[in-house]
């Protein structure tokens, strides 16, 4: 029983993600989370603003249910499976983060500087989270998929466009962490 209270090691987590994809294929669907954002836009009325959102969003209801499940999964993991504890990240990464002003590095699941409730009263914090989300949403749709759609589903099907997208993910991520972080934090 003690095992379920431990973090899931990478060599278990990876195969379980592949099984998530397999289960979705076996129920006749595909593994891709970011398309939910488009579905939600349409459900919220974006279909009145441009053609991209004119589709039968109710046909994507199944994926919204998967998304709803991931919300419940997060709740269960934290409340019943001891999830949300501090990850044991690399000490050098912790030092780098502390020098950027992330004092919570190495002592919480998410940086409190960005995800503590005090961020709601920080203009800079809100701006950073909103910009991060905006880039994720815009980029995922522009690239036609995110980590699940391209890095897992697409690459599993040996799709060259997915490899291009994943290379892009890394160019962007490396640029943000190495070039932009020192400027904004």
């Amino acid at each position: 029983m003690d095992l379920i209270n431990q973090p899931i090691p990478w060599y278990i987590a990876g195969p379980l993600i592949a099984i998530t994809m397999l289960l979705l294929l076996l129920v006749g669907k595909n593994f891709g989370m970011s398309s939910n954002l488009r579905t939600m836009c349409t459900a919220l009325g974006a279909d009145k603003t441009c053609d991209f959102f004119c589709f039968d969003w109710k046909g994507q209801r199944w994926n919204l249910l998967v998304m709803f499940g991931t919300v419940i999964g997060g709740f269960i993991a934290v409340h019943y499976l001891s999830g949300g504890n501090t990850p044991e990240i690399n000490p050098e990464a912790i030092n780098n983060l502390k020098s950027l002003g992330f004092e919570s590095a190495g002592s919480s699941y998410l940086p409190l500087e960005l995800f503590g409730t005090s961020v709601f009263s920080s203009v800079k914090g809100i701006f950073i989270l909103l910009t991060g989300g905006l880039l994720v949403g815009f980029g995922a749709r522009y690239a036609g998929g995110c980590t699940s759609g391209h890095a897992i589903s697409g690459l599993s099907n040996l799709q060259l466009p997915s490899l291009t997208a994943v290379i892009g993910f890394f160019i962007g991520g490396l640029a943000m962490v190495h070039l932009i972080f020192p400027l904004i934090f």
Binding site: G139, T164, A165, I167, G168, F169, G173, I180
Partner: peptide
């Protein structure tokens, strides 16, 4: 895929 991927990566890291 490349431009979209880069934009996504910037956001993913941020």
């Amino acid at each position: 895929y490349l431009f979209g991927g880069i934009i996504f990566g910037l956001g993913w890291a941020l």
